[in-house]
Computed example of a mutant assay.
Amino acid sequence: MKIGLAPTNSDYGPATADMAVEAEQRGYDSLWVGEHSNIPASRETVHPDGGELPEFYWRMRDPFVSLAAAAAATSKIKLAMGVCLVLEHEILDLAKSVATLDEVSDGRLLFGVGVGWNREELANVSDVPWPLRYNAMRETVAALRLLWAEHEAAYSGEFVNFAPAWVYPKPAQQPGPPVLVGCRGRIGMRHVAEYADGWCPLDVGFRDIRVGIERFRTAVEEAGRDPDAIPISMYCYANPDAEKLELYGSLGAERVVLGAPDGADRLARFLDRYQPLVDAFAD
């Protein structure tokens, strides 16, 4: 099994490049960083898991800059967006940023995408109506793939439109880096089934993870695709242990991503605590 590490990547934590080096040395196959372009001070949208919003949400570093620094400091570890909120970016600029990151990392990028959970965050930077966010993400991914693969690309859709343009560089991975969709609901699963190269759900979002994965496999089959051809990278925040990793592996998860706490001291204790698990399970 592949084991990934997902630190909070906050500005009061260790440097991203340092985390990437340590993760690579410890046997992790991938380093995952999230994204929030902004967190509205209104706090009208409640966090999906309830409770107070942790400080690291509004103190995350930029994922592109962070992973570029990590790429320069490492040679093997995969660099993963977990996830990029693609609707909060201008499409041509996003295509260039992703392609550049894949190029400078020699094709080590895993491009996780998502729609986010905060209505006000999206409204601050986009005119996409909240109920249509998944439709807009579908168009965004389709347009990105065109821009990465073709010398001259154009797109005309409901949410994404641009005239024929040249956007370079192209990604090292062709026709583009794998697109993983982060979600845990039925609508998101249908989108994964339709066009994603991978699925990265949170294990804390399911009452029974077995039911969730079976629902996912059914959605993929209904879309006419092979569930075994869409790798699962399971975000594990619910007290990972050997039994849990064995369960996820038996259910078809290719990778388990360990969600780490914020703060340098807490992160260091976390890494030491779970090193035996990494040693036992990592490929």
Rank of each mutant, 00 (worst) to 15 (best):
G198C: 10
N9A: 15
A229V: 03
A165L: 01
F216Y: 13
N9T: 11
L146Y: 00
F56G: 06
P227W: 07
L271K: 15
T218G: 01
S250V: 03
R186C: 02
V104E: 04
A253S: 14
F159Y: 13
V83H: 01
V204H: 11
E214Q: 04
A142I: 08
D203I: 05
E152C: 00
K170S: 05
V125R: 14
A41I: 12
G51A: 12
R215D: 13
P40F: 08
N124C: 14
L258G: 07
G157E: 05
R61V: 11
C200P: 04
Y195C: 02
F206I: 05
A196R: 04
Y237R: 09
Y274W: 15
K2W: 07
V83W: 02
G182L: 04
M137Q: 15
G51R: 05
G27D: 09
G34A: 14
D62K: 05
A6Q: 13
M1R: 13
G107E: 08
S66R: 11
C84H: 12
R119T: 06
H151I: 08
P178R: 07
A72I: 03
R190F: 01
D279K: 15
P14R: 15
S97G: 04
V104Y: 05
A15S: 15
R190C: 02
D241L: 14
G198I: 11
A264D: 14
V33Q: 09
T45K: 07
Y274M: 13
P175S: 01
H36R: 06
L202F: 14
F162L: 04
V83S: 06
R61E: 08
E55Y: 09
A219T: 00
G182F: 03
P227K: 09
E52R: 07
L271W: 03
T100Y: 04
F64R: 05
L202V: 03
L147H: 02
G157I: 01
D241N: 15
R190Q: 13
T218A: 07
R215Q: 13
G4N: 11
V256T: 13
L53Y: 08
A253M: 13
R138W: 00
V211A: 11
L267Y: 14
E139A: 07
S66P: 08
R269L: 12
H191V: 07
M234T: 07
L247S: 06
E88N: 14
R108W: 06
R266G: 01
V21W: 06
A253C: 15
W148T: 00
W166L: 00
K76P: 01
R138C: 03
R255C: 10
G157C: 03
L101R: 00
E254G: 12
Y237C: 11
G112N: 14
P129W: 10
P131T: 10
G13K: 06
L202Q: 12
F56Y: 14
S250M: 04
V256L: 07
Y155R: 02
S30K: 05
G176F: 00
L251M: 12
